[in-house]
């Protein structure tokens, strides 16, 4: 296929995944806000700062708004066209990329994405308030699932699908890593019952934000524990949002595309590291450093994929 078309498909899938991650992030933030309120009377500001910090939009937000309120952050992160990280902006780019390459997409993929865009394009904050925000977030999540269903259910098992898969899992791995890295460092709980309760609620919010609550329950027959949560989301290949799960997908797609590509070599090294490392070791070097390093590796693989397959000139 054309290098430019591969690039378009890659970014289309990457941006849709980014939409889903942003929606999850907002939902998790709303949940945390409720929990902090009930726990210690509320430090709402810091909770609502998280989506802005994670997407690097804090200074822009503060330049435009005086107050950090849940409504402002929601509107800014969902619908603001002047915010390049908002769901509306990211969907616009996903749809632009799809439109540029729609001749390679099945009608199911294109029309589904186009419909999502046409609906959100005309959505403004007033109408958002009229329905509940949760309903909107649910709807967006469903549209992202529909997109993936159409992608994997209707596209030929060919290069196009592999480039979409690469975009999807590079974005997902990066998001999981940066989301975990943004969490406050937590020691495993002591015997203090109040701390135990807090660990339970915070752990739940974190797992739900990454769609992995059930996975935890099914994998570990124990109470929620931050070390195990980290282990699950970093090292377990069976968890669809784990770093290992994402890396395995990247390796598989690259191997099919070109077994001698430099990007595959780099992905292999990353995969090997995740296969062999123990969670205890990760904690000793520092969880945050490990995660940010992983995110940087993904950036480099992404850039190498561009060089290996998509050179326009």
């Amino acid at each position: 296929m054309l290098g430019r078309a591969a690039d378009n498909i890659f970014w289309m899938a990457r941006y849709v995944e980014r939409v889903e991650n942003t929606v999850r992030l907002l939902r998790a933030t709303a949940l945390s806000a409720l929990l902090t309120e009930s726990a210690d009377g509320g430090d709402d500001d810091t909770v609502w700062a998280r989506p802005l910090l994670l997407t690097g939009r804090m200074s822009d937000f503060l330049a435009r708004y005086e107050q950090l309120t849940s409504g402002r952050v929601m509107a800014y992160m969902l619908l603001d066209r002047d915010n390049p990280a908002s769901v509306k902006s990211v969907l616009a780019r996903a749809r632009e990329n799809a439109r540029a390459t729609r001749y390679l997409l099945t009608n199911e993929v294109w029309e589904g994405l186009n419909k999502t865009w046409l609906t959100i394009k005309d959505l403004h904050y007033v109408s958002l308030q009229r329905s509940t925000i949760d309903d909107q977030l649910d709807w967006l999540t469903e549209r992202c699932f529909l997109f993936r269903g159409a992608l994997f259910g209707s596209m030929r098992r060919d290069d196009g699908l592999h480039f979409a898969n690469l975009g999807l899992y590079l974005e997902r791995g990066d998001h999981t890593a940066r989301f975990l890295a943004s969490q406050p460092e937590r020691a495993s709980a002591t015997d203090d019952p109040a701390a135990k309760v807090r660990e339970y609620y915070e752990g739940t919010a974190l797992l739900k934000a990454l769609g992995s609550y059930r996975a935890y329950r099914e994998t570990f027959a124990s109470n929620l524990d931050f070390t195990r949560i980290a282990e699950l989301l970093i090292l377990h290949a069976t968890v669809p949002r784990s770093l290992r799960g994402a890396t395995d997908e990247i390796v598989n797609s690259l191997r099919t595309l070109n077994p001698t590509a430099d990007s595959l070599k780099a992905a292999h090294e990353l995969q090997y590291r995740l296969q062999t490392v123990q969670i205890g070791h990760v904690r000793r070097v520092g969880l945050r450093a490990f995660l940010l390093d992983f995110s940087k590796e993904l950036d480099e693989i992404s850039a190498q994929i561009q060089r290996d397959f998509m050179m326009v000139q």
Partner: peptide, 17 residues
């Protein structure tokens, strides 16, 4: 252009391609 390329299963190219 996209429609016809898709229907015929051929590449839709721009000059730069």
């Amino acid at each position: 252009h996209a429609f016809l390329a898709q229907e015929m299963g051929i590449e839709l190219v721009e000059g730069q391609d």
